[in-house]
Design a protein around this nucleic acid. Sequence first.
DNA 1: GATGAATGAGCATTCATTCAT
DNA 2: AATGAATGAATGCTCATTCAT
Lengths: 200, 200, 200, 200
Amino acid sequence: MSDAPTRLTRAEQQARTRERLLAAAADAFAEHGFDGASIDDITARAGFSRGAFYSNFADKSDLLVQLCEAHIDRFARAELPAILAVPEQEQLAAVARWLVQEEPPLETLLVVELARQRHRPEIAATLDRVLATVIDGIEGLLTVEGSQLAGLGRDEVQARSRAVLAAVVGIDVLGHVGIPIDRRVIELLLAGIADPEAAT
Amino acid sequence: MSDAPTRLTRAEQQARTRERLLAAAADAFAEHGFDGASIDDITARAGFSRGAFYSNFADKSDLLVQLCEAHIDRFARAELPAILAVPEQEQLAAVARWLVQEEPPLETLLVVELARQRHRPEIAATLDRVLATVIDGIEGLLTVEGSQLAGLGRDEVQARSRAVLAAVVGIDVLGHVGIPIDRRVIELLLAGIADPEAAT
Amino acid sequence: MSDAPTRLTRAEQQARTRERLLAAAADAFAEHGFDGASIDDITARAGFSRGAFYSNFADKSDLLVQLCEAHIDRFARAELPAILAVPEQEQLAAVARWLVQEEPPLETLLVVELARQRHRPEIAATLDRVLATVIDGIEGLLTVEGSQLAGLGRDEVQARSRAVLAAVVGIDVLGHVGIPIDRRVIELLLAGIADPEAAT
Amino acid sequence: MSDAPTRLTRAEQQARTRERLLAAAADAFAEHGFDGASIDDITARAGFSRGAFYSNFADKSDLLVQLCEAHIDRFARAELPAILAVPEQEQLAAVARWLVQEEPPLETLLVVELARQRHRPEIAATLDRVLATVIDGIEGLLTVEGSQLAGLGRDEVQARSRAVLAAVVGIDVLGHVGIPIDRRVIELLLAGIADPEAAT
DNA sequence: GATGAATGAGCATTCATTCAT
DNA sequence: AATGAATGAATGCTCATTCAT
């Protein structure tokens, strides 16, 4: 009867279902861990039935993989370019802002889960890809043309990128544990990293 | 009744059982997480039966609590005093050494598990105690008489202790994820914290 | 609307879909049993989707019924008349040939499934009809005019028809279990049945 | 308080549990097939909980294996020797009696299930053992010293043992399907097998 | 008529916990 | 104190079935 276009095509519907399930899973995993979160919990949060889950994911571990892929994609496609677009001198300030934003930049607890499920081959591959992407991103960020760290040697860059990652992870975990991290803490953590001549 | 000298008294036997179970649990939790580790796994690692476990702990959650208490006690009673005994000027170097020692100073993954089980009241209390002990310890360490940071204000001390904790946690997690952290990374992270005049 | 001659009419198309699904189901049931075979397995073998199945059959149990009806119809309409058309003296030889033909004369495993689903009324009716058709067919075969068994009493005929059926079933099951049955075995089983004066 | 011996030791208790579960499983498998029978159904019939099952069997397929092993052991240890103990001339009469006894001599439906689960390696081994044991038993029975078939060649003995097995299986299946098999049917089936000079 | 996403009951299995020994 | 058989709730997953497209 109606010639108005259907609001959502079937494929769009399913994509929406998938997105909601991924979002619910991110919450549930952060709250209870991978083993602690049940599929029922996840689907209930998303407002779907158990079966909807298995229409969209092969199994629970596939969900974890896809969730991490989605996170890392967002990081590589959206967040990293946004920081890199900032004028060179303010790069570290941009990193600092990024570290304390509401939506956490890196779901550390998710990465911990990934690490725990590393014994499954399909997970190990994703973990490696996630870590490589993040570290590459940070290295690129530190050595962007015009940066005060642009002239550093390979080892120094690597050490600094790992230091940044350690800071990000530490801050994220403390946030989950209920210890608030303000701008000052971040300044202190980044001070040495930002200084091209940090003493040995 | 017995006239042969028992090698270990009953109490010593039980203490040994308890220690072995705690050690096995630390391994199992780090490997699989709290939910992922089964009591059978833990008791098998320790070489005991299910029953031995329930003779020593009320339930699984009690095990987690006792494990954290044991860790934090060791930290407060042994490790912290050892660092504090070092001459003031080398305090931060001692912290650095402490951060990279073989046996990790703080079982970060254990703390993550504690945080996840926070909804249980007995766990929440332990988590608070663990965090308070660690932060107090670090604050004491930073402001020990003669330290270059001794004159800082309350807020600065708090920010720096949280920065140290974030560094410790970040380093520990990266270690678990397979990213090696060497001395240089630690220097970079501590540089700002150690500088009494770190810029704002 | 269409001016191109459709290769197959709608009805023919559907009949073909139905045939393929029935054939796929026969394979799947023989391989995994009624409960063990999934509709997805059946439709995948037939090259269709779940929906095609439900367009042709009310439910899984309806499929089993229709499959057995199709088998028994083929038996009653094609195979039995073919044997009965053979000259009387060679009837039992024809039965013997029939028993070892490539396409099994009676899907014993299907009958076993029917028996297991007997508690459902529609299944019980089909089972009774299948068994009655087969036994009637065998009795007619044994007592066909001119047969050496034509003069036997009711009880003797019934006993012999059941003996034939037992032989057919036994042979079929052993074939499924991997024990090959050759002509000699069939001769031995039929020898007593074929002898009008088999001792008591 | 009591110095009377405990009725059942722990090991005896568990053996009883195991026996009851095996008996319940035999019923449930015969009624619903391997896939159709649920563990809950089996344990409920036996009067135990789900967990008791998993204390005694590794999983459902282990249950099937152990059930078949138990059946074949009973056949090889008790039933076959009993028939062989009978005077030679009455051997086939004893077989006939054995075939129609209340407790079926061979759980044919169980064997059908075994055959269906053959793709699992542990099952395939059991199936082979079951079939080999039964066929060996029947061959020994047919060629026992003094038997009228004692002088037959290898091929004839093999053909006759398979014929007996086919008869046993056919009779058993018909019994499950509701077709009663009386002594006369068995006589007819065995007549050719028992005749050393059955025509070719 | 055919498709396949979604539903939800059912099932095998795991595992924390209890308790008789 | 320690054992391990038994319990039963919880969980991941399968699969018959429905229904919007």
